[in-house]
Structures are given as C-alpha cells and as structure tokens.
Simulated scan of single mutants.
Amino acid sequence: MVIHQIKVAQALASSITGGGRGANGTPFPKQPEKALKLYEFEGSPFCRRVREVLTTLNLDYEVYPCPKGGTKYRKIVEELGGKQMFPFFIDENTGEQLYHSKKIIRHLFKHYGKTGETPQKYSEYPNIPYVALAGTIINGARGVWIKKKIIDRPAPDALLELWGFEASPYTRVVRATLSELELPFIFHNVAKERWQDQGPALLRLKPGKYVPLNGGKREQVVKVMNRPKQDIQVPYLVDPNTGIKMFESKDIIQYLNQQYG
C-alpha cells in the first residue's frame, strides 16, 4: 500500500511538472468513425505530448504498448513504417500513418480540433521535450521497459478498456503497468470539461451532488460507470476477456499483474 502511494505521488509530481496539460478537454469531441491507433510507451516524453493533445481533444483511441524490449508491437511498427520509432500513429479515417509527435499533433488539431489550427502552445513545442522528460524521470521511468517474464505471453483476444485522462496520477500508474505488460487497450478520455469537474471524485471544488455538463462526454461516461452516486471516478477498467469491471488503481494493477503478469 505504501509503495503504491509513493508511485501515485511520483505520478502526481510528474503531472504537475507538465503544467496541467492533459487534464482538461472539450466536452464535445469530434470522435472519428474508425478508431485512432497509437503505438507508444508510457515513459516516452514524445508520446506523452501526443497523449496530452488527445486528452485536450477528448478523443478515444487504441493503444498498442511498445516498451523497450517489447516484441509484439515494435515489430509491427517496423513492418508498417519502416523503423522502430515512437510515437507511431495511424488514422484510418484519413489514411495517414505518422511518426514524430509534432506531425501527429498538427494532424489531430487539423482533423479533430474546432478550427483546424494548432494552438500556439502546442505548435511551438521545442524539439527536445525537456518538461515531459523531467516528468518521466520524476515518475521513476515507469512504463519504459517491458517486464521480461511476460515476453512470450500472447496478447488477450479482446482489447481491454481504460477510462481516465492523461494527467490523472492514478490513471498514469495503471497505464505504466499496461505498458510494461505490453497489453493493448482502448483508452477512453474523460477530460475535465469545466471548473465544476476539478478535483478528485470525493473532493471536488464544487460541493454537493456531481452533475455532469448536459450533453457533454462526461454525461455519457456517468452512465457507463453506473456508480451509485452518479459520479465519475478514474481509472475505471473493463476487461471483456474476463468480464471484470473495476475502479481503484491499486486493485487494477494487482489484477493486471495476476491475470497477465
């Protein structure tokens, strides 16, 4: 328990280092018909840039973890793109396959942003992601390397599903475990849509019963989670391979290690 809380504290410090990127997003995303696919690994600062924008645009996407030492999806990236470089992004809606975080970010804002233009704070990213790199180091470089004992384990038949948002420290520690276990999953972004959403489920800035924005994405997610208090809590994991549905990062990580480790 203590070790887990230390990991969460490091993940929180990593998120703070990012200046709040990856926490807030539009309540009305332009979700494409075909799934966006991201080949990446949790500890990569370049991949983190892309994940932050995906949260800003509140887009759901498929994740194919490619940790260092991984054998499944790194090979696929090389076959498709010609080299093992990350992030690697596939958008079957436009027919594009892209390397390089800056190119991917421009693509996302062009096709799924409100104006089609990339906001200045994202268009002027430095070539070397010093801030995101610092966040990776603070987070203990979790999600960088594969757990060697599971290299020969086949991938599950169906993609796992995880609800969260990039800057959530509790979600970050779960994503790190998914990366280290090389487990593919669908990431459902649940970005904070307005000030009333700020804060953890039990300590929101706005007291009283939580009411999601009418017509927003969070209103749909409340129904998916089916919590007694009609609130939103992340991370939330669904494993269609076993029928498991669960909250609490500590419990989720324990389940993933037992089931797939």
Rank of each mutant, 00 (worst) to 15 (best):
P29D: 09
V224R: 15
C66Q: 05
S44H: 02
E42N: 15
H100L: 15
G261M: 10
V77L: 07
S101Q: 03
P45H: 10
V222A: 08
V234P: 00
V173E: 00
T56Y: 10
Y130Q: 12
P212G: 12
E219Q: 13
K148Q: 10
L213C: 08
G18I: 02
I232N: 03
F89S: 01
Y260W: 03
P240R: 13
L38D: 00
T242Y: 06
R204K: 15
Y170P: 05
V238P: 08
K68I: 15
R227S: 11
M85N: 13
A132F: 08
I104Y: 00
A158G: 09
G81P: 05
R21G: 06
L159I: 08
I90M: 11
I138F: 09
G70H: 00
Y73S: 05
S15L: 07
I146W: 00
R153I: 09
V234H: 07
L162D: 03
L205N: 11
G164E: 06
T118D: 02
Y99E: 02
G216K: 01
T94P: 03
N226Q: 08
G243S: 03
L162N: 09
F86D: 00
N24H: 12
E40M: 12
S179G: 11
V173C: 05
E78F: 12
N139K: 10
Q84H: 14
A158E: 15
M225W: 01
H100M: 15
T115G: 10
A134I: 13
G43E: 03
M246A: 03
P200Q: 05
I252F: 04
T177R: 08
E92G: 06
L202H: 14
I105V: 14
G81A: 10
A13P: 06
A167M: 07
P240G: 02
